[in-house]
């Protein structure tokens, strides 16, 4: 029985401790700040925010979508 208590208590201390350390690290290094920038990682100059990137082939596009440039003028 004692062995389980030691294991359970040990892992509890270890897990909680490492979670707290990770949290402290995250707060100190500003990981929780500026998450907006991270959310933008899926976009770039080629496919910027505001541009839809997937369509049914050969079907009309959304009429008001400003993101769809015409191919030719």
């Amino acid at each position: 029985m004692l062995i389980y208590i030691i294991i359970l208590a040990g892992s509890f201390v270890f897990l909680t401790g490492s979670a707290l350390l990770a949290l402290r690290w995250a707060l100190r290094t500003g990981q929780l700040r500026d998450s907006r920038r991270t959310a933008l990682l899926v976009f770039d100059e080629d496919e910027p925010v505001g541009r839809m990137t997937d369509y049914f082939p050969g079907r009309p596009l959304p009429p008001t979508d400003p993101a769809s440039p015409s191919i030719s003028k």
């Binding site: 100059e45 080629d46 496919e47 541009r51 990137t53 997937d54 369509y55 596009l61 979508d65 993101a67 769809s68 440039p69 015409s70 191919i71 030719s72 003028k73």
Partner: peptide
């Protein structure tokens, strides 16, 4: 021509 096209692949494949 006012037709619109998907920009994604076109942009991805041709240098802008």
């Amino acid at each position: 021509m006012n037709s619109q096209s998907s920009p994604s692949l076109r942009q991805a494949l041709t240098p802008s």
